[in-house]
Design a protein around this nucleic acid. Structure first.
Lengths: 150, 150
DNA sequence: GTTGATGCAAACGATTTGCAACTGC
DNA sequence: GCAGTTGCAAATCGTTTGCATCAAC
């Protein structure tokens, strides 16, 4: 748990201005564990910050994510990607070019089920994130694929 | 590998009309392993089917997915969900209500890395899919959250 | 011949962007 | 005071939908 003082000094150390909105979004996110969306946070924080805009929440989440203070659940890919392989398998996603490779490894197919809270698992999948061979070598041959957000 | 004859009889057995477009999308998807998006498929198939529309590709992918012939990579969630927990952890996603629960289990944190193709893994996460306690019991207390697509 | 799929264009929801006003440092 | 952020509204992107036409069975 990172307290307000630490947050303040982390922002300072990175030279990023700490605004009320940024602190509010971060503290709200710290206070709950239901993985809210940008919209959820906006609706909640509107009460305390009537002038807050949804665009600011989005920008703030990007900032916090870039600083490593928050994580995004699921893939940041905005487009659904399809696969004719329906057998159990997993994926390796290149963070640089967005390429998705299939990973077949029976050791990944049988993982301990989540114990908590009565969840009834039906399936699972493992996503590796890292660099594909091409990007790791520095030849950015696939880089064109990804329309880098920023 | 499912050949054209099997595809035809599978459609017939389910009473789903097999159109040229559906066969084309499915065979294109079978032929490649780069996990194309709907748009990718559309651009590729335009050459052979100049009258093909993007909407048809989307509808066809839904149909194929419903029949279990293709799988979607990543989560079908359309909204990004955030989390102030940046430590290594995993997620259990309820297919009925969309609720996301954190899963902490050190046995999931150290999985065999993908061996193939020179991929350099940096991190990974496991997504369990199934039913949360509430939905498994039939009380759909959280169902409102999910604006069921269909 | 019927039923359901296609193609088109408009609608939609999530996210981003341009720009003027404002605020943290 | 200045650089960088905010708020607004419009733009953008992926995806869905309504409806008339057309193809599969």
């Amino acid at each position: 748990m990172i307290d307000r003082k630490e947050v303040r000094s982390l922002f300072k150390s990175k030279g990023v201005p700490l605004t009320h909105q940024r602190l509010a979004v971060y503290e709200e996110l710290q206070a709950r564990h239901d993985h809210p969306s940008a919209e959820d946070l906006y609706e909640k924080l509107r009460g305390d910050y009537p002038s807050l805009s949804l665009a600011t929440v989005y920008k703030t989440l990007q900032t916090l994510h870039a600083m490593g203070l928050v994580s995004r659940v699921d893939s940041p890919a905005s487009q659904a990607r399809y696969d004719a392989v329906t057998a159990v398998h997993h994926h390796a996603v290149c963070d640089a070019c967005g390429k998705i490779e299939d990973v077949f490894d029976p050791r990944l197919d049988d993982l301990p089920a989540p114990k908590a809270s009565g969840f009834k698992p039906r399936a699972h999948s493992v996503h590796f994130h890292g660099l594909c061979a091409a990007c790791a070598e520095g030849r950015r041959s696939n880089a064109a694929r990804r329309s880098h957000h920023g």
